[in-house]
């Protein structure tokens, strides 16, 4: 019985400590979500069409997208993309972005590209998905930062 009481006491004591420490910690945690920064030069590491991986079958080496700090982008593409050339971009929400809004130079139409920002094998990836021809065909480009 003694062990049981001791255990009970220890449990309650730990519980209290844990609870108390949590409260202190929680008060000090900064809850501001950092602003997502997608600037830099990105190279394609994977391309899928309707979930089918085409990376090994297409030449991805010459495809680059450069998001500059001044809000412009430059696209070097030998592969289809929603836009060509260069233009301006902005995130729909700097803290919780789920799309990047892109406008090509000389065009008025703003195109929303679905954006994900996962960490794969310890590296931050930029994942853009969209349709190019038929709406039923979805392409996903996964990029890694070059610099």
């Amino acid at each position: 019985m003694k062990i049981k009481q001791l255990l009970l006491f220890a449990f309650v004591a730990f519980g209290y400590l844990f609870h108390a420490s949590c409260e202190d910690e929680m008060a000090n945690v900064v809850t501001d979500e950092p602003v997502k920064n997608i600037t830099g030069s990105w190279k394609v590491v994977q391309l899928t069409r309707n979930g089918e991986d085409l990376s090994q079958r297409l030449n991805l080496t010459d495809f680059r997208i450069d998001f500059k700090e001044d809000g412009s982008y430059i696209l070097a593409n030998e592969l289809p993309f929603v836009l060509v050339g260069s233009g301006a971009y902005t995130l729909n929400d700097p803290q919780y972005p789920f799309s990047v809004l892109m406008t090509a130079d000389g065009e008025s139409e703003q195109i929303a590209v679905k954006l994900q920002y996962p960490v794969v094998n310890g590296k931050r990836q930029l994942s853009l998905s969209f349709s190019l021809g038929c709406a039923g065909n979805t392409y996903q480009y996964n990029f890694e930062r070059e610099n």
Binding site: N50, L58, P80, L132, C134, N137
Partner: peptide, 10 residues
Amino acid sequence: QPVRSLDNDI
């Protein structure tokens, strides 16, 4: 493939 596509598809 895909059975349905446009000239801007792969």
